[in-house]
Nucleic acid binder design. Structure first.
Length: 156
DNA sequence: GCCAACGTTGGC
DNA sequence: GCCAACGTTGGC
């Protein structure tokens, strides 16, 4: 079982949108970066836990936890000509982009903000800080636990 | 809205 | 395969 961080812009798709999915899970689609794609396709596994990070908002922060309920499969929107995520170079036989399904698990009563993450020495080598633009990134067990501690501190 | 830091594209 | 031009992400 591994840990991940997925970024999303809350005005596009927030953790609340995920929590309100009627079918009980959300499709994490629209990833159009090769490094993120490779993590999704090759390493993200069913049962893995995911921090949901809200970007391009105030404040940017880890807001809660989701669980991977289906491993990578071809992202359907790459084949939809009217979609923003349509890719004419991708074929059903040889899809370029992948998505996973995630289920909402929990929300931090107080999010762990980027500035708090930057202030915590244990987290200084987090992929989130090293590669600011990567929308799917690995989280070590130590990092996972440190962020959970920060979220608990804030709850008190 | 600005802009730094990337990532992608395409001419050569 | 290089690299300039362009596009995007995302913090501030």
């Amino acid at each position: 079982m591994a840990f991940w961080l997925f970024k999303t812009e809350p005005n596009e798709y927030s953790i609340d949108n995920l929590a309100q999915e009627k079918r009980g899970y959300g499709v994490w689609d629209g990833i159009r970066n090769y490094q993120a794609r490779n993590f999704l396709r090759d390493d993200v596994a069913k049962g893995d836990l995911v921090f949901i990070y809200h970007s391009a908002c105030k404040p940017t922060a880890i807001v809660g936890i989701a669980k991977v309920v289906r491993a990578a499969y071809a992202d359907p929107v790459q084949f939809q000509a009217d979609s923003h995520y349509f890719d004419p170079k991708s074929t059903e036989q040889n899809p370029r982009w992948f998505c996973v399904d995630v289920a909402y698990q929990s929300r931090f009563s107080s999010p762990v903000t980027l500035s708090e993450i930057k202030r915590e020495p244990i987290l200084e080598s987090m992929a989130l800080l090293k590669q600011a633009r990567l929308s799917v990134s690995p989280v070590t067990e130590q990092e996972w636990e440190a962020i959970l501690r920060l979220s608990v501190q804030q709850n008190g």
